[in-house]
Simulated assay, not measured.
Amino acid sequence: MNRNIKTQINVNGQLMDLSHPQVMGILNVTPDSFFAGSRKQSEKEIAERVRQIVEEGGSMIDIGAYSSRPNAGDVPAEEEMRRLRYGLAVIRRECPEAVVSVDTFRADVAKMCVEEYGAAIINDISAGEMDANMFPVIARLGVPYILMHMQGTPQTMQACPHYGNVVKEVMCYFSEKVQRLRDLGAKDIILDPGFGFGKTLEHNYALLDQLEEFSIFELPLLVGVSRKSMIYKLLGGGPEDALNGTTAIHALALMKGACILRVHDVKAAVETVKIVNAMRQSRYVCQ
């Protein structure tokens, strides 16, 4: 595995060290996210979720106001902004020092969240495909950018996913996108293979099996598999039954180079990071 991966990103003027994997807690201010337990809409629910993420050891809060589950309905930009303003105001009040990531594919929404609320990271499921202004705006804002692979859109991505070689095609996709971002002057880029976004069960596990191949980019890798259908369609049940499978994949992903885990269950993910780190440290003890 390539050992020259960039392990520091600039968040709000401070360096975050990703050589110790970080846990990003999910905060959905939506009425229709795929995991019902993650939907937080009232001020009380949002505040409780923010405190839970921080108290359980999450180092980042990823707030989203547009459900990206398969076949999700469209949300107008004005409504997405309204939801985010509501949620970001609660985060600012409850935990003003929190590192906040905003899950949006709209450049204007990203700009508003960074300039008005101090959001530190933009997490774009479409890698600029759904808004041509996103890359130039990210370069001007100078914030870390999570570049995710998705085939199609949330409305179409699971209609008929197809690849010749899913790993090679995702890598080629990243290669072109990363170069465009660098040409524009974007600084901190984080890669997300997009588990569950325009992929079959087989595609998802092929990506997991070869996850270490993405170290060739020498960029931090984010893995978001929390309670997704790639787990419960294999094991049975639904999202509410998928915590054990999620934890198993988190351990594998960390061993294959993941730097950030985007999760619903923060405590379980933090414990997984601790176990994998202890295993790694034992190598030096035994030498």
Rank of each mutant, 00 (worst) to 15 (best):
N2F: 06
R3N: 08
K6M: 10
Q8R: 15
N10W: 02
V11M: 08
G13I: 02
H20N: 12
I26Q: 01
L27R: 01
N28F: 02
P31W: 10
F34P: 05
A47Y: 06
E48N: 12
R49K: 14
R51T: 15
V54H: 02
E56G: 05
M60N: 02
R69W: 09
P70W: 05
N71W: 08
N71T: 07
N71K: 13
N71E: 14
N71A: 09
A72S: 15
D74Q: 09
E79K: 09
R82W: 07
R82Y: 09
R83Q: 05
L84C: 02
L88H: 03
P96C: 12
S101P: 02
S101V: 04
V102S: 00
D103Q: 03
T104E: 01
T104D: 03
R106F: 04
R106Q: 11
A107Y: 00
A110L: 02
A110D: 00
A110R: 00
A110E: 00
K111N: 04
M112F: 04
E115A: 01
E115D: 10
G118H: 00
D124S: 09
D124R: 08
D124M: 10
I125L: 11
I125M: 08
I125F: 03
M130H: 12
F135L: 15
F135A: 11
P136L: 07
V137Y: 00
V137L: 04
A139K: 09
G142P: 06
Y145K: 10
I146V: 15
M148T: 11
P154M: 10
Q155I: 07
C160W: 07
H162R: 14
V167I: 11
K168Q: 13
C172Y: 10
F174A: 03
L181R: 05
D183P: 04
G185N: 10
I190E: 01
D192Q: 06
G194S: 04
F195W: 11
G196H: 01
G198Y: 00
Y205N: 02
E213W: 05
F214V: 03
F214I: 09
F217L: 03
L219S: 02
L222V: 04
G224I: 00
R227H: 13
M230N: 03
I231P: 00
Y232K: 05
K233L: 12
K233M: 08
L234P: 04
L234Y: 14
L235S: 11
P239D: 11
P239C: 13
D241K: 13
A242R: 04
L243Y: 04
G245N: 12
K256E: 11
G257P: 07
K267M: 10
A269N: 13
A269M: 13
A269P: 10
V270S: 12
E271W: 13
T272M: 14
V273K: 07
K274H: 15
N277Q: 15
R280P: 06
Q281L: 12
S282A: 14
